[in-house]
Amino acid sequence: MPGHDPRRGLDPVRVAEVMVRPLAGRGPGRRGSGYRVGLRWVLTAAHVVRGAEGGTAGVRFEADRAAEWTATARVVLASDKADVALLEIAGSVPLDGHATGPEPPSYGAVPDADVVLPCSAMGFPRFKLREDRMRLLDDGSASQYRDSCHATGITSVLSNRREGTLELAVTPPESDAEPDRSPWEGMSGAAVWHDGTLVGLVSAHHRTDGLGRLAAVRVERWYGLLTGTELAVLRECAGLPASASGLVRLPCPGTATPGPAALTHLPDRLPLRELNGLVGALTDLPAVRNPASLALLLDSVDPVVSAMSPRSPALRPDLFGILGTCLRYPGTLDQLLEAIRLLEGDSAGVARMDQEAVELSRRHRRADGNR
C-alpha cells in the first residue's frame, strides 16, 4: 500500500501470550501479555517475568489459528523500577511478511494536558479463561485456554499523576468471581496504543479503581527510570528513540472531549446503516444489555417511546426499533442517551456512545448544509 507505515498501530499477529514457570517451589505459573517489537524481541511488563525459572519464558502467537507458533524467550532486560522487560526469542522465527522481520513500532508520548484520548490494548486476561471441550485431560475434564481481549477505551491523561501511569477506562468484565484474583490478571505487559503509536504497557489493575480501570506505565517515563545501559538495549533491540525528544509527540486536541451531541435536528426517518454505529455502541453497555435496566431507561423518557417502539427479543433489532421511534418524537433520543449517561456513569462505553452520537450529528448537519 503506497505510503503505508508498517509500524503504525496494533498488529494482532504480533501480540504475545507470555507464559512463565517460576523457580521450583515458588508458587504456580503466571501468564502475561506482550508485543513483538522486532524479529526476536518482545516487550512485556517486568513483574510478569520476575523469578522466571532459568531466566526464560514461553511466548505464543496466534494461538489455535493457522499461523500459531510458540518459542522460548530469554529475559535480557527486566526493570522493576520501570516495570518493563525485553525478551529475546530463541530458535527460528517467522518474518511476518517482512524481509528482515517486523519493524519496531512508533513510540510516543501523550500530551500532559486536560484531554481524554482514545486508546486500545490487546492481551490475555483471566476473565477470558475458557473451557475447550474438544480437548480433554487425562481425568476426563475439559482443558482450558485464554482467549484474547481487545480492550478499547479512553485515557484521562491527568489521572494517576503521582504514580506516573496512564489510567485506561475500558469496558469492564461483567463479574468479579474470584475476590483474591483480579479478572484482569494476565493483561499486564499488553502494549497500549493511541493514534497508531505505542504509548505504554499495561502494568496493574488497582482493585479500588473498579473493574473498568487499568494502569499503564508511560513510555516517556522509561527515560527517567531506566539506566543508560537499559535504554541502550531498548534502543538497539526494540527501536526505542535514543531520548525522550525522539518520541512522537501526539497532538493535543482543542477540547478535552466533545460534549453530548444534540440530535433533535435528525430527520424522522434514517436508513438503518446510519444508526448502525450508535446501535453498536449501545449494545456494549451493561445497562442496555440488561432487559430490566433497559425497561427502566425507556420508562424515564417520553412514555410513547416504550409504548410504540417495535420490540424484538434480539437486542440489535430492538435497539433499531427504539431509535427509530425516538426519531419520530424529537427530543426523546437525547433524553434516552442522557438517561444512559446517568445510569452508566463515566465509562469507556459511554464515551464511545457519545462519539458515535457526535459523528451521526455531524454527518446530518453537513447533509443539511449541502441541500
Rank of each mutant, 00 (worst) to 15 (best):
P2M: 08
G3E: 09
P6Q: 14
G9E: 08
V20T: 05
G25C: 12
G25S: 11
R26I: 02
G34F: 05
Y35Q: 07
V37C: 15
V37D: 05
A45S: 15
A46M: 04
R50S: 13
F61T: 07
F61A: 07
E62L: 14
E62R: 13
A66D: 13
E68Y: 11
W69V: 13
W69H: 14
A71Y: 04
V75S: 05
L77P: 03
L87I: 12
I89W: 06
G91R: 04
G91I: 11
S92N: 10
G97S: 08
A99M: 06
G101K: 12
P104S: 07
S106L: 14
Y107A: 05
D114I: 00
L117E: 07
P118W: 03
A121Y: 10
E131D: 05
R135H: 15
R135T: 11
A142L: 08
S143F: 03
Q144S: 14
R146N: 06
D147L: 11
I154A: 06
T155L: 04
V157G: 01
V157H: 02
S159Q: 14
R161T: 06
G164V: 01
A169R: 12
P173L: 08
D176Y: 10
E185W: 01
G186M: 08
M187S: 02
M187E: 11
G189T: 02
V192P: 12
H194P: 00
V199T: 15
H206R: 14
D209M: 15
G210F: 13
A216C: 09
R218P: 12
W222R: 03
E230R: 05
L231K: 00
L231P: 01
A232V: 01
C237S: 11
L240Y: 11
S245C: 02
G246Q: 11
G246H: 12
L247V: 06
G259R: 10
L263D: 05
T264F: 01
L275Q: 11
G280P: 00
A281D: 09
T283A: 04
P286S: 14
A287M: 09
P291F: 07
S300H: 08
V301N: 04
V304L: 08
V304P: 00
A307G: 03
A307R: 14
P310G: 14
S312C: 07
R316G: 00
P317D: 09
P317V: 00
D318T: 02
L319Y: 04
I322P: 02
L323P: 04
G324F: 09
T332W: 08
L333W: 07
L336W: 07
A339I: 07
I340H: 04
R341M: 02
L342H: 12
L343Q: 15
L343C: 08
D346P: 05
A348K: 12
M353G: 06
E356L: 00
V358Y: 03
R365S: 06
G369R: 06
